[in-house]
Design a binder for these strands. Structure first.
Lengths: 199, 199
DNA sequence: GCGGAAAAAGCACGACCGTTCTATGAATGG
DNA sequence: CCATTCATAGAACGGTCGTGCTTTTTCCGC
């Protein structure tokens, strides 16, 4: 039962990369099989349906994201440094070579926002966890005294995510060379505002 | 040459609504024809290719957006009221019944960000115009003395767009009932920061 | 190394895709 | 009112899609 698990993992790795370019809907079983040098039916046997493939792709991407972005940030000091690390980590994540087509979650969000089903549920849960993670980091920064006591940490997480979306839009669609600088400036303003008491 | 133009327009109207739900790729000629009670080939004759259909859908959506959002805002007083009107107009636009599936530009941005071609070019131009419009409104607010003199108006437009993207994400994907309140709070913070000199 | 189990391939299916060609109906200008 | 153009319908094409079914190949414990 080992060989199977191995290719299963290899399939998901390639699928995540491919899906970042063509989206979850555009990810075809035939195309994925060809990219891997497998037969269509051989690959299909690993997943009972395309929906299941999409779900597992999202789960694999979430696991990768946690390992690449969240875990490193948890190694940073509590408070503002960790908040900053989460933001920097996301910027790095979006630049990662494994995501040639930009953040897979952003792409999936647009595709699935009106498509009820397991794939959407998986994505929403993943995003909720990520937003909770951001809010929790901000909450710790409040406890540590870096951010003001009355800060709405959920609002802060929401705003931080918006900055990330703005960055993605500016970089991937508009090809704005200043995208990263703009995102950093926007986030700095957010952090500055969070520091000052009685905003 | 009148009957043709009429149905042509009717097709685009339905196509915009449909595309907001299923995306530009998901918009199939057969499905669109069925929705309109036309034959597939009869509809196809209006556009020489699917790409051309996508381009015209984007152009129709842009025209609708200009009429529904930009033009009303231009009727508002120069300066901050107009800036606010553009933001409010966008929130209304996103809530419009014609866009059952959320803002078509947001959906298209994710689909086309790595798909070179006429459709992408059309979308990018549309978005560039919109960002220029936002920046120009902010510029006028500077001239009117509502915003500080040193304000980076392109950055302001970028940040404003990011707030809109954050709103779209929170509302359409996360189904957050507080989405609009969060967006308004974020935009208010942006405006407040733009007002205060030497941020 | 052999036998059973797991993995992959091969093949075929029905459905839908964009597109083309041809024919027929309706609308329009003189 | 007629002739011509234009709008639409119909049928068919090659292709790809997701998904089953059957067979062959590969792996792994004994």
């Amino acid at each position: 039962m080992r060989k199977g698990e191995l290719t299963h993992q290899a399939i998901l790795e390639t699928a995540v990369r491919l899906a970042s370019r063509v989206g979850l809907q555009g990810l075809s079983i035939g195309g994925l099989a060809e990219e891997l040098g497998l037969s269509k039916s051989g690959l299909f046997a690993h997943f009972k349906s395309k929906t299941e493939l999409q779900v597992q792709v999202l789960e694999a991407a979430t696991a990768l994201f946690t390992e690449r972005v969240v875990r490193p940030a948890l190694g940073r000091p509590r408070g503002e440094p960790r908040v900053q690390a989460l933001f920097d980590g996301w910027l790095t994540w979006d630049r990662d070579k494994i995501l040639e087509g930009g953040c897979i979650f952003v792409a999936a969000a647009a595709e699935l926002d009106d498509a009820p089903g397991p794939a959407r549920d998986t994505l929403v849960q993943s995003q909720r966890d990520w937003l909770d993670c951001l809010a929790q980091a901000a909450r710790i920064a409040v406890v540590e005294g870096h951010f003001r006591k009355a800060l709405d940490v959920e609002q802060f997480a929401h705003d931080q995510y918006a900055v990330m979306l703005g960055f993605h839009h500016a970089k991937r669609l508009m090809r704005d060379p200043q995208a990263e600088a703009r995102a950093r400036r926007a986030f700095d303003a957010l952090v500055t505002a969070a520091r000052t008491p009685t905003s």
